[in-house]
């Protein structure tokens, strides 16, 4: 089912959470709403679900205007951050809940068969008789997903689905959700503040800031061409430098960075730690190593430039470098943005 948001607005008391957001999600697509807390991403998700009502604008499910359809009739599957499983029901009863309260009468046999099917889908065979308090966090989240899928929703909505789990379980569940999505092909929208999660899982990433969409595109598009300094910053570690452009070229130390299309004047230059290198000589920014942090994938150097600015850069694991060493930070890639 294709979903379309048309100029949706939401205000809480005096705080405008969502400013005229328009968004299209194609049928079968897996889309991430990514943004810092307070960016309005959860509010948008809850409006799609019908748990909040939009103050203005429209939400369409296919050709149908769903803006005023109440939650219980909207046919969405919603997975909550803290699972929201019914603690007094067994896993099987939780999954069966939607079918039992449905206006469409189903006989017990049909419900049991469907529950068994869903338990198999979420790889929890044999745990149907347990209570939510007796299973792990990752298992609870899978029960929550099975429960949401049990009502054959038109669209699946997930609110920070892996936020409360530890890193390893999180990565596994992410891959697994991707597989389930491929298998069922259900239109899915999920909210996260974790850029790694969004990039790992989604077909398309929608980045939000202060209630507005600041960029949307495939993970490749947003990673390679961040539309603004905010997106650049939000997607990963960066170093920011102020520099001046003259004749389409910015100068940073004795490095020359092409800045086509920028008028002469001040700009901000953003450099990811992996865009930088460390050498004893050459063109770049003169700096002194303050500290070296070792990580599985390589070494991160914390350096201070001659003007006292802190810079972080990643170098290969075999690089020989230690604190107090002097050298030059070389620049392989850089992004130039107008000064904010």
């Amino acid at each position: 089912m294709k979903i379309r948001l048309d100029n949706v607005v939401k205000t809480f008391e005096t705080f405008r959470a969502v400013h005229g957001v328009s968004l299209e999600i194609e049928s079968g697509e897996l889309v991430a709403l990514l943004g810092p807390s307070g960016s309005g991403k959860t509010t948008i998700l809850r409006m799609v679900a019908g748990l909040e009502y939009a103050d203005a604008g429209h939400i369409y499910f296919g050709a149908e205007d769903a803006t005023d359809i109440p939650v219980r009739d909207r046919g969405v599957g919603f997975v909550f951050q803290h699972y929201a499983l019914f603690p007094h029901m067994t896993v099987a009863e939780n999954i069966a809940f939607g079918m039992k309260v449905s206006k469409v009468r189903r006989d017990k046999g049909a419900i049991d068969t469907r529950v068994a099917e869903l338990l198999r889908l979420v790889q929890l065979d044999g745990l149907g008789e347990r209570f939510p308090g007796q299973i792990s966090g990752g298992q609870r989240q899978r029960v929550a997903l099975a429960r949401a899928l049990a009502v054959d929703p038109k669209v699946l909505l997930l609110d920070e689905p892996f936020g409360a789990l530890d890193a390893n379980v999180r990565r596994d569940l992410r891959r697994w959700l991707r597989e389930i999505h491929q298998e069922l092909g259900i239109t899915t929208l999920f909210v996260t503040h974790d850029q790694e999660e969004a990039l790992d899982l989604a077909d398309r990433v929608v980045i939000l800031d202060k209630g507005r969409i600041v960029q949307q595109g495939t993970p490749e598009e947003v990673c390679r061409n961040p539309a603004s300094a905010f997106v650049m910053n939000f997607l990963g570690d960066t170093n920011r430098f102020s520099a001046a452009v003259s004749g389409g070229v910015a100068r940073l130390g004795d490095a020359r960075i092409p800045a086509p299309g920028f008028a002469d004047g001040p700009v901000d230059i953003f450099l990811r730690p992996s865009d930088l290198g460390w050498s004893q000589s050459g063109e770049g920014i003169a700096a002194t190593v303050a500290r070296v942090i070792d990580r599985p994938a390589g070494r991160r150097i914390l350096a201070l430039t001659a003007t006292g600015e802190a810079v972080e850069l990643d170098v290969a694991p075999e690089t020989v470098v230690s604190a107090q060493q002097k050298g030059v930070i070389t620049i392989e890639r850089a992004k130039v943005y107008a000064t904010a």
């Binding site: 679900a49 219980r72 909207r74 909550f80 929201a84 019914f86 309260v101 449905s102 206006k103």
Partner: peptide
Amino acid sequence: ALEEAAQTLGGS
């Protein structure tokens, strides 16, 4: 969220 979950599942 328990009540909201029940609502999304179609509960009256």
